[in-house]
Write a protein that binds this DNA or RNA. Structure first.
Length: 476
RNA sequence: CGAGGAGUAGCGCAGUUUGGUAGCGCGCUUGGUUCGGGACCAAGAGGUCGUGGGUUCAAAUCCCGUCUCCUCGACCA
């Protein structure tokens, strides 16, 4: 008892320091471990299981949109990177380069992919010949490497897992539409599977992808009011098509360059999930994304009939389609309660002699920390209902926080006060890079996305007429 | 690259001021008793004190060098 209080206090103390809370919880819950190379992480089974759910859900959506999975090499000739001028400028500082292989120095260094636009563009240049080949929509699940100076598990690591989709279209309009369609797909996924609301919109020139015509992003608000870029889609125009000679013969017989777009989300989504829903006790996983949706903790395990009853209940719930774990380890019940709460399992069932005698089971909700009893005979319905409610509660909670923390600002002072208070700041912007830079210097905040609804009259920085309405925030 | 901090058992740390032959908590192993919010008892395993040199009868401790890691800053399409 005293020990438990001490444990909860420990976690609560570090929650006060949010970044530290995050790192500690991620490591303690055994989602990841640090790798031997600085800035790398080893994803452990519990963390990887979340990633597998994300993969499954996204693959289903991509499939409906005509996207097929494929795989391209990890090593890219250095010369590929330099074919698109802005692209090389943006990525060169953070690529890892292979200079030796097979015991000899390589004639041309190879880049460990930081993203695959170039090598996929190279292949698309060979594959695309006719308008009948378009649209060409491929996606790959892979690892990429970006040598970041400071890192944090899932949020920014030297190596991370992601999916990157790359499409070629016949017209600019088709490629632009695909860019927005994929952004909407991501947002729907975040809402449905991660129970996480996001702001979507176009990025400023400063924040856009190296080599893109336009970049769109989705931003999620974390517990501390900071923003996390959870995914991006890019419209490339003909920039990469011209660099890699992606040409096709059109319906009119003329040779034309294709229009390309790309999109990606990474294991950073897991970080977003943790930071969006977690509390002082640790993780809270939304039921659709939880590797274990229900954990069953037997009480007085060695008493006759207890374990058998637990197994029977686990089998019934598994048959009903829930992801269920029976914790029949030798640890004490109190230890198991805390352990699985910290790991974010949305629903816990306790089953002991008292419950069995009454024909009930005890159920505990991770989101509200409420305990209640329900008849064993109705277990499937009760569990299904509660899991649904937990998902709704988590989404509603996160959405209320985000919308409650979007404040307007008319000048730099208000903007600074806004982000200091852990808010997203909605403000006008004249469109000048100088003003965007000044906001960064003055308030350590960046333009996250442009709001579609453009109604702020003046620039928050210079006071001139506003061209855009922008969500400013501090970001991870 | 700038500023600060830390390297002692798997993890977290004490011991360094004032040199005396390595300790605590957690974890781990074995056996037993337990189980409705991190249980208890007993026994046990585990350390070239980051590293190289120096001073000394004697160095985790003092001196010089060196390596690594962490935090903040800068950087982060």
């Amino acid at each position: 008892m005293a020990k438990n209080e001490q444990f909860v206090k420990e976690i609560a103390d570090i929650e006060a320091d949010f970044p530290q809370w995050y790192t500690d919880v991620v490591i303690k819950t055994k989602l990841v471990d640090y790798g031997p190379v600085k800035g790398t992480m080893v994803i452990r089974p519990y963390g990887y299981a979340i990633w597998e759910i994300i993969q499954r859900e996204l693959n289903a959506r991509f499939g409906q949109m005509g996207v097929e999975n494929a795989y391209f090499p990890m090593l890219i000739p250095m010369s590929f990177l330099t074919k698109e001028a802005e692209h090389v400028e943006g990525f060169a500082p953070e690529v890892a380069v292979v200079t030796h292989a097979g015991g000899a120095k390589l004639e041309e260094p190879l880049v460990v992919r930081p993203t695959s636009e170039t090598i996929i563009g190279h292949m698309y240049g060979k594959w695309v010949e006719s308008w009948r080949d378009l649209p060409l929509r491929l996606n790959q699940w892979c690892n990429v490497m970006r040598w970041e100076k400071t890192t944090r598990p899932f949020l920014r690591t030297s190596e991370f897992l992601w999916q990157e989709g790359h499409s070629v279209h016949e017209t600019a309009q088709a490629a632009e539409e695909e860019t927005l369609r994929m952004l909407a797909c991501y947002a729907e996924f975040c809402k449905t599977v991660l129970c996480m609301p996001v702001l979507t919109g176009r990025k400023t020139e400063k924040e856009k992808f190296a080599g893109a015509v336009a970049t769109y992003g989705m931003e999620a608000m974390m517990h501390d009011g900071k923003s996390l870029q959870a995914g991006t889609t890019h419209y490339m125009g003909q920039n990469f098509a011209k660099a890699f000679n992606i040409q096709f013969t059109g319906k009119d017989g003329a040779l034309e360059y294709g229009y390309t777009m790309s999109y990606g989300v990474s294991t950073r989504l897991i970080g977003a999930l943790i930071m969006t829903h977690g509390d002082a006790r640790g993780l809270i996983l939304p039921p659709p994304a939880a590797p274990v949706q229900v954990v069953i903790v037997p009480i007085a395990m060695k008493k006759e009939g207890v374990l058998a009853a637990c197994n029977a209940l686990a089998d019934r719930l598994k048959a009903a389609g829930f992801r269920v774990k029976l914790d029949d380890t030798d640890n004490s019940p109190g230890w198991k309660f805390n352990e699985w709460e910290m790991k974010g399992v949305p629903l816990r069932i306790e089953l002991g002699p008292r419950d069995i005698e009454n024909g009930n089971f005890t159920v505990f909700r991770r989101d509200t920390l409420e305990k209640s009893e329900a008849p064993l005979a109705e277990a499937e319905n009760v569990v299904g209902g509660l899991l649904g409610q937990i998902g709704e509660t988590l989404y509603a909670r996160a959405e209320a926080r985000m919308h409650g923390r979007i404040v307007p600002a008319a000048n730099l002072g208000e903007l600074l006060a806004g982000v200091d208070g852990g808010n997203f700041v909605r403000a006008g912007w004249c469109g000048a890079r100088a003003c965007e830079d000044q906001v960064k210097t003055f308030a350590q905040a960046t333009a996250r996305v442009l709001d579609e609804k453009n109604d702020m009259p003046v620039c928050v920085c210079c006071g001139k007429k506003a061209e855009h309405t922008v969500f400013f925030a501090r970001a991870y």
